[in-house]
Amino acid sequence: MENSRRHFLKNTCALVAGVSVYPLSGNNAEMEPEINNIKYALLHDESKCIGCNACVEACREVNHVPEGVTRLSIEKTGPFGEYPNQYYHFSRHSCEHCENAPCVTVCPTGAAFIDKETGIVAVNADRCVGCLYCIAACPYEVRFINPVTKTADKCDFCRETNLKEGKQPACVEACPTKALVFGNLKDPESELVARLKANPTERYKQSLGTRPKIFRIKARQGEIIL
């Protein structure tokens, strides 16, 4: 009798311990999605960008983004230098597709999510209630409420449009100077990885720990020559 009670207590303790540890290991696995071996990223070579806004127009057309809002913009700074040898810097302003995305963390309905198969941060418009949490949380200020759908919207690397058709994102296809390179970070043969290895790149606000996936080759002009 005493023996069986001891057994019961032992087994119960083991079960409780097991059950409490199990979800922890599950959580760890979720942090690093390793399905399909795809992790999409984008490289903006600012030394090649001419600020023509072809990417912005292509994005608007392909993703049916209404006038007045945009998923993508090119920010211009300058002019630098003296006339007639002046130049500008252009940098891309769009979703950074963070691996540790604040917008996903704060979303109360699960509308903002990271697609585990591609690493793309996307919005499920059917779930979005327009509470604006994600817009406040995004440190890159790239989210907006789409005036037509009244839900949060932003760049999704054309996940619902061009990528589904096996094409490159609209901005990448439209760029006349090939300043944008889209590819799979996990494919060592991809042009993206080759370019990342060959050039020093920068990512915005890395110190926040968001682990953004838009890489930038900074324009050489204005840089200190060592």
Binding site: E57, P176, T177
Partner: peptide, 17 residues
Amino acid sequence: TAKQRSIECQRCHSVQR
């Protein structure tokens, strides 16, 4: 228009794909 404007840039600035 915005679209025509970017096409105007591409008249000169374009590389082979």
